[in-house]
């Protein structure tokens, strides 16, 4: 386990260096921060003055070296737009993005596992209800998040007027962003669970259990589903990155004060320090969750434990 953790940490370090380097140069290749700050009405002299003021006129390699040295002391730089430390902005908003992600993940698990289990337990003889449910899951998987968001708002805020949808103003404003984000994952997870359950039900150990007189519910609940969930555990980990990328759209539509909307705004304003801080923090989070899922996968699957020993 210790060796695995060390390997993961080394991977994370390499990933972060690669990411920061790529981002640093890519951002500067696509936008001129001084010109963005000055605006199109400025004179070239004013842009040059801004460049000198913020050290943007120094050689790029020197700016990069200073940036990396700052990162080593957790100094992510300062937003040239708001004047605030870039990391402070991210830290202020991150809990709300994580909250949304956690809620969406919980809702995904609550919905997708039973749906998947039900769909997968048909054993090749799906009735009309299962066929309809499969079709709905299939369609939902292809539906973009912003369409789901706008539909939800149209139904529950505009027509029925049951729910508010702007910002983070209490529990009722959490519902639609959560459902929107979960809509990314529920169909995926449900299909994986369904396929895994169907596969597990065809295994020898299920036939043995059935021959021993186990009930259908017992077979599914005690034998097939736990095995089916092993594959799903890995999916949940990898889908965390999808959740965070989905938050960019979801947060913009719902005016949710998370890092997704911060990233959109920072990108539009060529606020490089903030873009970089958001990207690094998200990368660490995704990596951590994926590594956690890997570890959980190994802990849950006795075959992997045995292989290691």
């Amino acid at each position: 386990m210790r060796q695995l953790l060390l390997t993961r940490l080394a991977n994370l370090a390499v990933l972060l260096v690669a990411l920061t380097t790529l981002l640093f140069f890519l951002l500067r290749a696509t936008a001129d921060q001084a010109a963005m700050l000055a605006g199109v009405d400025a004179t070239p002299e004013q842009v040059a003055e801004i460049r000198a003021q913020y050290g943007l006129d120094r050689p790029l390699w020197r700016q990069y070296a200073d940036y990396m040295a700052g990162l080593a002391t957790l100094d992510f730089g300062e937003s040239l737009v708001s004047g605030k430390p870039a990391l402070a902005d991210v830290v202020e908003r991150l809990p709300w993005t994580l909250l949304l992600a956690a809620l969406a993940m919980t809702l995904t698990i609550v919905l997708a596992i039973p749906i998947g289990a039900w769909l997968g337990s048909a054993q090749g003889r799906p009735g009309p209800a299962r066929r309809a449910a499969s079709a709905v899951v299939f369609v939902l998987q292809g539906m973009p998040g912003f369409v789901v968001a706008l539909l939800l708002i149209e139904i529950f805020a505009v027509e029925l007027r049951w729910l508010p949808f702007i910002g983070n103003e209490g529990l009722d404003t959490w519902i639609m962003p959560t459902v929107t984000l979960a809509s990314f994952l529920v169909p995926r997870l449900a299909r994986v669970v369904a396929a895994n359950v169907a596969g597990a039900l065809a295994e020898d150990y299920v036939r043995t259990a059935r021959a021993a007189g186990a009930s259908a519910r017992e077979i599914l609940y005690r034998h097939a589903l736990p095995n089916a969930l092993l594959g799903a555990t890995a999916l949940v980990g990898t889908q965390f990155a999808f959740l965070l990328s989905g938050s960019v759209i979801t947060e913009s539509i719902f005016a949710w004060p998370g890092v997704g909307s911060l990233l959109v705004r920072a990108t539009q304003n060529a606020d490089f320090a903030v873009v970089q801080a958001v990207a690094i923090v998200i990368a660490i989070l995704v990596f951590t969750v994926n590594a956690g899922a890997d570890l959980a996968f190994k802990a849950l699957d006795p075959r992997l434990r045995e292989r290691r020993s």
């Binding site: 696509t30 936008a31 001129d32 010109a35 963005m36 199109v40 842009v47 539009q268 060529a270």
Partner: peptide, 11 residues
């Protein structure tokens, strides 16, 4: 993007 337009205006 607008950032590219502004970069091009000046550069």
């Amino acid at each position: 993007p607008a950032a590219v337009l502004i970069r091009n205006v000046f550069g």
